[in-house]
Amino acid sequence: MRIQRKTATTWLAMFLLLVLAGCAGFSSLEKPQVTLADIQIQEVKTLETAFLVQLRVMNPNTNPLEIEGLSCDVELDGRKFASGLQGGQGTIPAYGSVLVPMEVYASVLDMFTSVLGVLQNQNEQGAVGRPISYRLKGKVRVSSGGFSHNLPFASEGEIKL
């Protein structure tokens, strides 16, 4: 009986060490860098507009990452503009990048509020025609070595009209 307990305890300890080692290795992953590569109008409906955005996802890790999904929000000049989700998109090679197409959706009300706010800011600042700042934030769900994890991302830039 004592030998069985000792063996079971040894196996349990080994299992816990393996799990902790795996989690520690996964937590050392660097976040993928995600930037906005392109945006196009896809479809305009009465209450919603669909845009196709191309996201450049870069993997700064030594291991390839399998993309299980992406979610993102797009802000224009600090105002929510559009949101989207995308299922698995393949593998990002180690130290490589891929373009991920994603549809994002903006309600007409959010769109008009954002555009009117941008125009109002430009008129108040006397900067009509200036570039519009954008912010992209979200999560990439990746798997590597049998573990899955949500990794947040954020990037900013300007869109010149």
Rank of each mutant, 00 (worst) to 15 (best):
L47R: 12
S27N: 09
N63M: 06
N59I: 05
S155K: 01
F147M: 14
Q89M: 11
V44R: 05
T91R: 09
N121A: 13
V108M: 14
I159Q: 04
K160G: 04
Q40A: 13
A13L: 15
K31H: 08
E124H: 09
L151C: 02
E124M: 08
V98K: 08
P93Q: 06
T113Q: 14
L17R: 02
Q125C: 04
N61V: 02
Q54R: 09
F26S: 12
F153M: 02
T113D: 15
A21Q: 10
S97H: 14
M111L: 12
L55I: 06
Y95F: 15
A82I: 03
V74Y: 05
M111C: 07
V128M: 08
R79D: 00
K31F: 05
V98N: 00
Q86I: 03
P131F: 04
P131L: 02
S143C: 06
G117C: 01
V19L: 13
Q33H: 11
P101N: 04
G78R: 00
C72M: 12
A82D: 04
V128Q: 09
S97Y: 14
F147S: 06
I132D: 00
V115Q: 00
E66S: 10
L12I: 08
S144D: 03
I39Y: 00
D38W: 03
F153H: 04
G78C: 02
R56K: 15
R135M: 05
S28C: 03
L52T: 14
T62N: 10
E124I: 11
C72A: 15
V44I: 13
A50G: 03
P60C: 01
L136S: 03
Q4M: 13
E158L: 06
A13G: 05
Q42D: 10
V118F: 05
K137M: 12
D77K: 01
Y95G: 08
L116Q: 10
R141G: 02
M58F: 12
L36R: 02
V108D: 12
L47Q: 14
D110H: 07
V118R: 05
A8S: 13
V108Y: 07
N123M: 13
V142T: 08
V44F: 00
V98C: 01
L17T: 10
V53H: 04
Q89Y: 11
M102C: 07
E68S: 11
V140L: 06
H149G: 15
S27T: 04
D38R: 08
Y105R: 12
L12N: 12
I159K: 04
P64E: 08
E75K: 07
P152Y: 10
E30Y: 05
S148C: 07
P93W: 03
L99H: 02
R2E: 12
D73S: 11
W11M: 15
L12P: 01
L119Q: 14
G78T: 01
L85D: 07
M1N: 06
L70P: 12
N59T: 05
F153G: 00
S114Y: 00
D38Y: 08
N59C: 05
V100E: 01
V100S: 02
K160L: 07
